[in-house]
Nucleic acid binder design. Structure first.
Length: 571
DNA sequence: AAAGTTCCTG
DNA sequence: CAGGAACTTT
């Protein structure tokens, strides 16, 4: 059956916002591809999707392998495969993949609906259930509700509803992740692109391979996601949970308390739920800090090494996660986003990259068995000599079954994770060590997993405003204190990691003390303190706006926030 | 007018 | 930290 997909999805509203549920937001050149016919007769083949796509769009052969996708062959017949093509092709591929996923999933859903309807003859024939009115201009908050013919069919067909919801959720989840991936691609390119005057051949080379790897992993991940969607279609609209492989016990680092707070997904629908989290006792003192550090740890799989590989470079802050919503299946993508393609630590697809070398079409691993979720609270407030090395390590992994969660009942919208989570707050705090006055643009790029709107933006800005407030209050306080203590020379004003001031600040922005505060911040703090000291010493504080001058100085001391922070849920 | 800040409160 | 008022800046 050739299910031509409804095409009302093609009114690209120019450009602009990467509004969520608009998978159609594609580059023009992808809008009219020959997607109308199923790309593959076997929707369950998880790997060759991209290949098929490529083969389809370009008769030529050399496509996938080199990681170079020449997609718009039709339009750009004269396109010279010069240097630029690589970059563009990657992005295009990304978009294409995105589109493809959407269509595949959509088709899956349609099939599902049809299948369901087959069982209930009375159902309306136009079960198209999908006519998302991309009306939502702004005020994104509001729930575009869940289309779908099976919205409130009556009192039965609950399984049908669930399926639809689940599918849609997955779609959204994947779309969001894809968008993030796309952004990441762009970021990466924009970073290494501008003036490569450094002209290191070595650098170029490594960059090249980086992209290749990234691309391949993305491709694989996407394929998996698509495949996953299909696998999810229950033959009978019911249980599809594949055999679940329990995850071995996690290794818990002694110095870490474990997690708590289990998201609102308590009522996990029946089966699928295997062990969710390993709950460890956690010190009551930590309770107050709703923040939890979550670290992914490789699930022990046949191939994973016995020793737990540290999921992050020593010099780097450990990744912490905190999903405020149940994870979806597209964890591979999430992983890519968070850890990057070179993390050598693919919890979702254990060593997929590594082992996959030989068989491109491999990976038939049941997601349910691999997908896992780790969680851990940021316990201890103790001081670690090497915070960054220790990091929040304890975690637990679990085989997260697939989706569940139907938010409440009305479930006006899928779990799009609209708001900012405690993890975001934590991340923002750490970012403060680098920038005290981040522009909204910076915020946008550093919080790729956040769907920005006025509220979110203001909230983030407000956060930094609050951070600054605390910061300046501390500065003034300590400046006055040192004056009282008789410090007579500005030169005697210093800020080291041993300083009380630093302690206070660190406690505020890095409570868990698992982040290595950059030296630069110490410098900035010192300068700030000196500014306050000088001002107060000179009795400038008599002027109602004496702080303004200081603010002006400080805002110029902002520095770039490390790229690691750009990953979606870093921290 | 809108965005961004600071300041003050709770 | 969120809200809101007041003010500055664009």
């Amino acid at each position: 059956m050739n299910l031509s997909l409804p095409d009302q999805t093609m009114h690209g509203s120019g450009e602009g916002c990467l509004d969520e549920d608009k998978p159609e937001v594609m580059l023009p050149c992808f809008r009219r591809n020959a997607y109308d016919e199923p790309l593959s007769s076997s929707p369950y083949s998880s790997s060759s999707i991209i290949s098929q796509l490529l083969r389809k769009s370009l008769p030529g052969k050399r496509a996938v392998d080199e990681g170079h996708f020449y997609l718009c062959s039709a339009d750009s017949g004269q396109e010279d495969r010069s240097s630029v093509s690589s970059k563009d092709s990657v992005m295009e591929a990304t978009w294409l993949i995105s589109k493809h996923i959407y269509l595949q999933a959509k088709r899956a859903r349609v099939e599902n609906i049809i299948r369901v309807m087959a069982g209930s003859p009375t159902s309306r024939v136009h079960g198209d259930g999908e006519k998302e009115n991309k009306r939502k201009q702004r005020l994104p908050q509001h729930q575009e509700h869940n289309v779908g013919a099976s919205r409130k069919p009556g009192s039965d067909n609950s399984s049908k509803d669930e399926e639809c919801h689940r599918l849609k959720e997955q779609l959204h989840s994947m779309q969001r992740l894809l968008r993030q991936l796309q952004e990441k691609f762009l970021q990466v390119y924009h970073q290494e692109d501008p003036e490569n005057d450094d002209g290191d051949d070595a650098l170029d080379e490594s960059t090249e391979s980086r992209y290749d790897t990234l691309k391949h992993e993305l491709t694989r991940a996407v394929s998996e996601c698509v495949d996953r969607v299909f696998r999810k279609l229950p033959p009978t609209g019911l249980d599809t949970s594949p055999p679940q492989r329990m995850c071995p016990s996690p290794e818990i680092n002694a110095d870490r308390k474990a997690a708590q707070e289990q998201p609102q997904d308590d009522e996990t629908p029946i089966k699928t739920r295997s062990l969710e989290y390993y709950e460890e006792s956690h010190s009551p003192q930590d309770q107050t800090e709703a923040l939890s550090l979550v670290v992914r740890k490789p699930v022990l799989t046949p191939i994973s090494t016995p020793s737990v590989k540290r999921p992050f470079p020593l010099h780097q802050t450990p990744f912490q996660f905190n999903y405020s919503a149940p994870l979806h299946d597209s964890q591979i993508l999430e992983h890519l986003l968070k850890y990057g393609p070179h993390s050598n630590f693919l919890p979702c697809m254990p060593a997929a990259a590594a082992m996959d070398r030989s068989s491109p079409d491999t990976v038939d691993l049941p997601w349910d068995a691999i997908a896992m979720r780790s969680k851990v609270t940021s316990g201890h407030l103790g001081h670690h000599p090497r915070p960054s090395a220790l990091g929040p390590v304890v975690m637990d992994n679990l085989c997260l079954p697939h989706v569940k969660l139907e938010c409440g009942e009305g479930m006006a919208e899928l779990n799009i994770q609209e708001g900012l989570t405690p993890s975001h707050l934590k991340k923002a705090k750490l970012m403060f060590f680098y920038t005290r006055y981040p522009s909204s643009n910076v915020l946008k790029t550093y919080f790729p997993d956040v769907k920005f709107n006025r509220c979110i933006t203001s909230q983030l800005i407000k956060w930094f405003s609050n951070f600054r407030e605390f910061y300046y209050i501390q500065m003034e306080k300590f400046a006055r204190q040192s004056i009282v203590e008789g410090v007579s020379d500005v030169k005697d004003i210093t800020v080291s990691r041993d300083s009380e001031l630093f302690r206070a600040l660190n406690m505020h922005y890095n409570k868990a003390n698992d982040f290595h505060v950059p030296d630069r911040f110490l410098e900035v703090a010192e300068i700030t303190l000196q500014e306050f000291y000088s001002a107060v010493s000179a009795s400038k504080d008599s002027d109602p706006s004496w702080k303004k001058a200081i603010y002006k100085v400080i805002c110029k001391l902002d520095s770039e926030v490390p790229d690691e922070f750009k990953t979606s849920s870093y921290l």
